[in-house]
Write a protein that binds this DNA or RNA. Structure first.
Lengths: 236, 236
DNA sequence: TGGAAATCTGCGGTCAGTGCAATGTTATAC
DNA sequence: GTATAACATTGCACTGACCGCAGATTTCCA
């Protein structure tokens, strides 16, 4: 009853194994830290052999991060296929916004436990090794946007820096919005924060005055976040 | 005759070994690709044991990327110690600008061969593994700026997203400026490009009109860059 | 000149990641 | 329903990154 091709039993098993590995990897790492979990243990928890693990993910990092093999192609196409009337800026904003929303949906979706999901996300942002892996992933994301924007504009990204700047701003806005959305407890969707970050970045970071509204939007979404810490504080 | 402490023989040897390892790593990787160079070969080329390699660098990547252990502390302090009259925006811009310039100076400095230096930089930007490592390094750079800005402003970066946005924009501007400066052959310093990227990012990405001047600045610096490619072109 | 301290190195070990070949499982043709 | 092709799983053996340790060597300083 699917749209394109009914997924066969093989496909279903494959997807299940993939999810099991990913979920096991995240869980174990959240419990014990990235360095204290072996691939063998992850595979064990998902009830497959260690060798099979590497048939699904190219590295231990990839399983924890949750690398979707054709996400990037999808994003590329999404930028290209936005209405021709839209500026590149609008097209990228729309695509990134949708991506943030879909990402947030996973918090509820994968299991019925958003709290567990947030715990694991926090791990990814905390562990040094995983932070590095995530940064690499984000950079790849950005590269996809660069080439898509250049293609859309018909310019050569090797010469025209505009696609690079736009992609950097867009990906940064998305990334920061999701982080602060999660810090605020993950209420609703990060889309308004994404928009606010876009406004802040693209509308003029320097003009502190005109920035206030956008930042108020970013801050205001998490009313329960304690302000006890909102004082000067050195962080080592 | 140094300012703080006369470097002892030990220090000099240590620095020399460090540089030798780094230069050997970059050279071998530029020749044969990251995956086709072993730590043992790098150590061999620098005339130390493989075990000693890991006394200098925590990983193979670090040697190629050229991780300076206390660069981040320096940058943190630089942001803090900018004149109190400056806005955070101006302070960060100044620090990032200086950093870009200093980075560019290495092109001539390390050896008398800037061409060789550019060849190796290109490798870092081309090889997937090194791109990932570089992205991770850049993310760490950005984190340092975030905490420094927050400290300077006396806000908590966990709550106030402004430091994160500013740092992201600054680091992105710096990174893109250096890349396009290098693509243009590395004439002069990347500082004007950094400024232009700052203007583009901070002054309003969306307003295509007002952006034209900044981008013209970015493009115009490499007059010899062939415009034969400056046509529509899909990049797979 | 004689230690004290830092550095270099070899050794043994763990674990990530890969190619290969055997085995098991699912899909398909008849 | 069975044969067979296609694909997935697994074990095995191997390379190479990386670390802790302990002994040898070099550099420093009194």
């Amino acid at each position: 009853m699917e749209l394109v091709a009914p997924p066969t039993r093989r496909d279903r098993k494959k997807l299940a194994t993939r999810r099991a590995l990913q979920w096991a990897a995240l869980g174990l790492v959240a419990d014990r830290g990235y360095a204290n979990v072996t691939v063998e243990e992850i595979a064990e928890a998902a009830d497959v052999s260690a060798r099979t693990f590497f048939n699904y993910f190219p590295s231990k990092e990839a399983a924890v991060i949750g690398h979707d093999p054709d996400l990037f192609d999808t994003l590329h196409d999404a930028v290209i296929e936005r209405p021709a009337g839209e500026s590149a800026f609008e097209a990228v904003r729309a695509v990134v916004r949708v991506r943030s929303e879909r990402f947030a949906q996973e918090a509820d979706g994968v299991t019925g436990d958003p709290g567990e999901w947030f715990r694991r996300m926090k791990t990814v942002q905390t562990d040094p090794h995983l932070r590095a892996a995530h940064a690499a992933h984000t950079a790849a994301y950005e590269r996809v946007i660069v080439t898509a924007v250049a293609e859309r504009l018909g310019t050569d990204p090797e010469i025209d820096p505009y696609p690079a700047l736009l992609a950097a701003a867009a990906v940064a806005a998305s990334r920061i919005a999701v982080v602060y959305w999660a810090k605020g407890g993950g209420v609703g969707t990060p889309a308004p924060l994404t928009d606010a970050a876009f406004v802040a970045l693209a509308g003029g970071l320097a003009a502190d005055g005109q920035l206030a509204a956008a930042l108020a939007g970013l801050r205001g979404t998490d009313p329960q976040a304690g302000r006890s810490q909102n004082r000067k504080e050195a962080c080592s």
